[in-house]
């Protein structure tokens, strides 16, 4: 018995060390989300779906706004739509001791819809079954909870760095793909098919809009909140219009109620390039981030002038 247990123990230690070694190799290339769960609590958050994850670059905001705490905590439309799961995760990630923050919340119809039978029933929001709902800690390195409960692919991916993305330390997801027109056209067509199909099952959820409001109200005491609608390809606009024709009206109303600014770049699609119709290329992401930062800068300057005048 003793011999068996000793051998088993030594074998288990060797295995545990090997597994630890594999996990220690986890970086921003093996998975587009993991690193966001390994950083400490953050202050100025950028929130939203994959459009924000790829399209809003924290380093640009830091530079333009002379701050150093921007952090992109956006995921995808099906894992981080506004709802109880995302709000709970934001609360866990946010450092409530920080003040004078700037929060940028990217909004679009897809983060306000649900494919459950009853879009007003939070129990039918299936993001709770995804990693944001399952990961128990969002601030530990290495994050075993994410590896066990959140990561759904093979662990060997940790050791193979052949992905076309890089998740930066500040949470920005940099995607590098071939930019030839044929490939872009193919990607756009695939996105159109994919999202047109979603129109059949997804519908607007008043409850999700309410959770967006709750998210804003949670963050407001700690700084300025800005709502941003990022540009998308013209062909994708038509699909978005179908699922929520009154999107801008609703967001305008929400911004009035909550007293936050709404920066709408929806109609500036001609100025930017997209990888698949709704994700900005990394070059365009830099440009858009700069533009949003300048908007914020101007608003802040105007506000401080008003304050000084008063």
């Amino acid at each position: 018995m003793k011999q068996y247990l000793i051998k088993l123990f030594i074998f288990s230690v060797v295995i545990a060390i090997s597994i630890g070694f594999v996990f220690s190799k986890a970086d921003g290339r093996f998975d587009p989300f993991y690193k966001r769960f390994t950083s400490s609590k953050q202050s100025s958050l950028i929130l939203g779906s994959s459009r924000a994850a790829q399209g809003l670059v924290p380093s640009v905001f830091n530079e333009e706004l002379n701050k150093d705490g921007f952090y992109n905590y956006s995921f995808t439309f099906n894992t981080s739509p506004f709802g109880p799961t995302y709000l709970n995760s934001i609360k866990n990630k946010f450092n409530e001791e920080s003040t004078n923050n700037i929060f940028i919340i990217s909004v679009d119809p897809w983060v306000l819809v649900s494919d459950g039978l009853d879009p007003e029933n939070a129990l039918q929001f299936d993001e709770s079954e995804n990693f944001l709902g399952k990961v128990t800690s969002v601030n530990s390195n290495p994050n075993l909870s994410y590896f066990v409960n959140g990561f759904t692919d093979l662990y060997v991916k940790v050791l193979i760095n052949n992905s076309n993305f890089l998740l930066h330390d500040d949470g920005w997801l940099e995607v590098s793909i071939k930019q030839d027109s044929l490939q872009l056209e193919k990607n756009l067509s695939s996105s159109i098919d994919n999202y047109t199909q979603k129109l059949e099952t997804y519908q607007f959820s008043e409850l999700r809009l309410d959770y967006l409001k709750q998210t804003i109200l949670f963050l407001k005491p700690f700084g300025e909140v800005y709502l941003v609608r990022l540009p998308i390809h013209e062909k994708m606009k038509a699909i978005e219009y179908q699922i929520m024709p009154d999107f801008d009206a609703r967001i305008n109303k929400l911004s009035e109620i909550t007293s936050v600014k709404y920066i709408n770049l929806y109609n500036e699609d001609g100025l930017y390039q997209f990888t698949d119709g709704h994700h900005l290329t990394k070059e365009s992401a830099m440009m858009v981030s700069e533009k949003v930062a300048n908007f914020i800068k101007n608003i802040e300057a105007t506000n401080s002038r008003i304050n000084e005048d008063q």
């Binding site: 074998f11 060797v14 295995i15 090997s18 597994i19 594999v22 759904t152 093979l154 662990y155 060997v156 050791l159």
Partner: peptide, 14 residues
Amino acid sequence: YYGLVMIIFLFGSK
């Protein structure tokens, strides 16, 4: 046996 355990860990589905 070590290789087999690591294969299970690295290539095992959830």
